[in-house]
C-alpha cells in the first residue's frame, strides 16, 4: 500500500519537476515581457533530441553533449527573440499577436527538428544511471533523483537572480513596465533577451533529463508546453515559484490518478480541476501578485 503510494509520488515528483521547470521557464519570460512563449516546450524537445544526437550519433561524453545541447537551445532562443519577438515589439504588436508569433516559432522549430530527426521515437540515453536504486523501501534511479535535484537547483538559482541581484531587479521592473524601466536607463530588450536564453537553458536541460524517461521524439514539445502552461496558470503565472509549484502539483495528481484510477481519465480530470480552481482564484492558486501589477 504505502510502497505503491510512495512509488507513485516519486513518479509524480519526477514528471512534476519537468512540468514545473517548463512552468518556471514560461513565467520567467512572461515576467519580463508579458508574453507566453508557446515555443517553450520545443526548447525541451530540442534538449532531448540534442542529447540523442550528441550522445548517440556523435558519441560525445555527456558533459560535452550537454554543453553542445545548451548552445543549440540558446541559439534557438536567440532566433526566436531576433526573428519573432523583437520585430513584433518594435512594430508595437499587442501581446496576443506576439504569442501567436511564438506559436509560429514553435511550429518552425518542430518542422526543422522533423527534417533532421524524422518522426520516430528516439532512444535518449540517460546522463546518469537508470539502474534501480534502493533507498529504504523506495526504488528509484539516479536519473529520476537528479531531475528532482535540478528542479530544486533551478528554483533556487532563479530566486537568487530575481531577488538577490541588481540584474534581477531590472528584470522585475521591466516586467512591471518596460517603458518606465527604459526611463531608468534599463535596456528592456536586453532583459527580455536574457529571459529567453535563461528559460531556454532551463527547459533544454529539463528535456535532456526527461528524454530517457519519456522517450524522445520531435513531437514531444507541444505536450510539454501544454503541461508547463497548465502548471503556470494553475500556480500563478505572475510568480516563477508559483508556476513551478503548479507543475509539481500537476505531476502528482497525474501520477495518483493514473495509479489509483485509470490514466484515461487522469488528464481530463486534471483539466476540470484546474478550471474549477481558476474560477475561484483567477490568478492561480498562489498568484495574488499578478493582480496588482500595472
Amino acid at each position: 500500500m504505502l510502497i505503491k503510494l510512495s512509488y507513485l509520488l516519486l513518479a509524480g515528483l519526477t514528471n512534476g519537476s519537468v512540468y514545473g521547470l517548463i512552468g518556471l521557464s514560461l513565467s520567467i519570460i512572461y515576467g519580463s515581457s508579458r508574453v507566453i512563449n508557446f515555443a517553450q516546450g520545443e526548447f525541451a524537445m530540442l534538449g532531448a533530441m540534442c542529447a540523442f544526437f550528441f550522445m548517440v550519433s556523435a558519441s560525445l561524453p555527456w558533459p560535452l553533449a550537454m554543453l553542445a545541447m545548451i548552445v543549440v537551445v540558446v541559439l534557438a532562443a536567440l532566433a526566436l527573440d531576433y526573428g519573432i519577438y523583437r520585430p513584433l515589439v518594435r512594430r508595437r504588436a499587442a501581446p496576443l499577436t506576439i504569442m501567436i508569433g511564438t506559436l509560429a516559432g514553435a511550429i518552425i522549430l518542430y518542422g526543422l527538428a522533423f527534417v533532421v530527426w524524422g518522426p520516430e521515437q528516439k532512444f535518449v540515453p540517460p546522463v546518469l544511471s537508470l539502474e534501480p536504486l534502493r533507498i529504504g523501501f523506495l526504488i528509484t534511479n539516479s536519473q529520476q533523483l537528479s531531475l528532482i535535484g535540478l528542479f530544486i537547483f533551478f528554483l533556487m538559482l532563479t530566486w537568487y537572480i530575481l531577488y538577490r541581484t541588481r540584474f534581477g531587479l531590472s528584470v522585475r521592473a521591466t516586467g512591471v513596465n518596460p517603458r518606465t524601466a527604459l526611463l531608468m536607463g534599463i535596456r528592456s530588450e536586453r532583459i527580455v533577451q536574457f529571459s529567453f536564453m535563461f528559460s531556454a537553458f532551463i527547459s533544454g536541460v529539463a528535456g535532456m533529463m526527461i528524454g530517457p524517461l519519456l522517450g524522445g521524439n520531435v513531437g514531444m514539445g507541444l505536450l510539454l508546453t501544454v503541461k508547463g502552461f497548465m502548471a503556470a496558470i494553475f500556480g500563478g503565472l505572475g510568480s516563477p515559484f508559483a508556476a513551478a509549484a503548479g507543475g509539481l502539483a500537476i505531476g502528482m495528481m497525474e501520477a495518483l490518478m493514473a495509479g489509483y484510477g485509470t490514466s484515461l481519465y487522469a488528464e481530463p480530470s486534471i483539466f476540470v480541476f484546474i478550471l474549477m480552481v481558476l474560477i475561484v482564484r483567477p490568478y492561480g492558486l498562489l498568484g495574488d501578485y499578478e493582480a496588482e501589477r500595472r
Binding site: 522585475r172 521592473a173 512591471v176 517603458r179 518606465t180 526611463l183 531608468m184 496588482e292
Partner: peptide, 27 residues
C-alpha cells in the same frame, strides 16, 4: 532624467527597490 506623467512608479516593488532602480545609472 524624467519623472513621467502619472508618476509611473513600480507598484509591486518596494520603495527601496524603486529607489535602487533609479540608481541604475550609477550602479
Amino acid at each position: 532624467v524624467q519623472v513621467p506623467e502619472g508618476r509611473d512608479i513600480f507598484p509591486p516593488l518596494t520603495v527601496e527597490e524603486n529607489l535602487r532602480l533609479g540608481f541604475h545609472r550609477l550602479a
